[in-house]
Amino acid sequence: MDFLSDLEQRIAAVSAFAALDVAAAARRSDDDIVRLIEAGSALVRVGERLRAVAAGVAATRSVRESGHAGLAQARGHRDAVSLVQQLSGSTRSDAAKQVRLGESLLEASMEIGRVEAGPGAMEESPRGLPWHAVVDAAVLAGGVTVAQADAILRGLGDPPADPGDVAPGRQAVEAWGIAAQQLLDEVPVRTVEELAAAGRQIRDRLDAEGAEARYLARHEARSFRMWTDADGIHHAKLRFDDHGAAWVRSMLDSALRPRRGGPRFVDPEEAATAGDLIADPRSNDQLAYDLIIDVLRAGRSPTHRRSSARGSPACAWSS
């Protein structure tokens, strides 16, 4: 099915509601509202697919080698992501997703074209279809959204190259393709965030050597920065390594469990404490902030100041 035919079908599904505006929607039944959300979402997905393909084409025509003659550069943009962001009115992150998916769709389409052209054409691509071909097919069929596909693609990442080669081997491509299909099967029961997390976990199991390198990179990327904005409000940006993130998350989860639907306490004293926390007028974010500040004040010592200058991947938050 081409984009136009699919688009016509989705428009027909929305048109079945006849005249519809905000006031008319407010008078619809609950079942109608659910169907309208489904129909509208399906219509949006077709538009997203069409935009992703166009974004991928724009990216191929805006490569650095094209210089100022590139599609994006000729229109005053640094790259295709900037062009898509301006045209779509989206965030740069969303525009980057569109471009990444579009490039993926084009790559798979080219490989499929070589397969259909015969063995001679396949000599240009001896490894066959890319591992993400199953994801691309699901996108074109409307089975997954752009956000879901991007979560799978980024979560799994590209398979590692064979030693002495610049491209992944057949076994790696097949393993990543199987992993991608597994995640596609889980789309109905997983959120976008869960798909990305599952993809990263699978990648680390498939590529143990790369997992260690990524772990060390996350450790090296740890940082803390503070600044004050024009209104005098103080801000901070903290980039965790794995150990630090686990320690802070465990601390906050334990302290805020009564606010987040944790188990009921049998002990009267613990139950009373949980009740006080639930009744506390502070928001969860405010409680988390106050807890972290309390921990920092309690843990302030010369020992902590000395150890902060060292920091190795094996050094967890043990104090």
Rank of each mutant, 00 (worst) to 15 (best):
A18D: 14
R114Y: 02
G262F: 00
E103S: 07
S307P: 03
E65S: 14
S29Q: 08
E48V: 00
S15R: 13
S15F: 07
S301Y: 08
A147N: 09
E194N: 04
A138F: 04
A175G: 01
E270N: 11
V44T: 09
R45D: 08
S109T: 12
A298Q: 10
R100P: 02
I112Q: 14
H77Q: 05
Q85L: 08
G142I: 02
R49C: 07
G40H: 06
A133W: 06
R64V: 13
V22S: 15
V22E: 14
P258D: 00
M251E: 08
V99E: 03
A161T: 06
L83F: 15
S88Q: 10
L296S: 09
S66P: 03
A279P: 00
R45V: 01
G299S: 12
S5Q: 13
G89N: 10
A117L: 09
A175F: 00
D242V: 14
A133R: 09
R49Q: 06
A161F: 11
L153F: 08
R260C: 08
S125V: 15
A167G: 03
F224I: 07
T60L: 13
A19I: 05
L106E: 10
V44M: 12
G143A: 09
G210V: 03
A298S: 12
E48P: 09
R214K: 11
V34G: 01
P168N: 02
A24W: 00
A149P: 09
G169C: 03
D21Y: 05
R10V: 08
I178Q: 11
L105D: 06
R259I: 01
R114S: 09
A274Q: 01
D150Y: 01
L87H: 08
D136Q: 10
S254D: 15
D32H: 09
V22I: 12
I152N: 04
S104H: 06
T228D: 04
W131E: 02
L36N: 08
A95Q: 01
A108K: 01
S301E: 04
A108E: 06
D30F: 12
H304A: 11
L206D: 00
E111M: 14
F224V: 07
P268R: 01
L20Q: 09
D150V: 07
V46D: 05
A179Q: 02
V115H: 09
F265Q: 12
V139S: 06
R10K: 15
M251I: 09
R92V: 11
R78P: 01
A58G: 03
G169H: 01
L50A: 12
R92T: 07
V115I: 14
V81S: 04
A167H: 15
S41T: 15
I292A: 13
R10M: 07
D31K: 12
E123V: 13
L71P: 00
P188T: 04
V134Q: 02
L140N: 03
L183D: 00
G232A: 07
R127T: 08
Q98D: 12
R78I: 06
A72Q: 02
A255E: 07
G67Y: 06
L101A: 01
A42W: 00
L36W: 14
H219N: 04
A230D: 13
S88Y: 05
R300S: 13
R61K: 14
T91P: 02
E194I: 06
G76L: 06
A12P: 05
E124L: 15
E123A: 14
D207I: 03
S301L: 03
H234Y: 05
A23L: 14
L256C: 08
A138S: 13
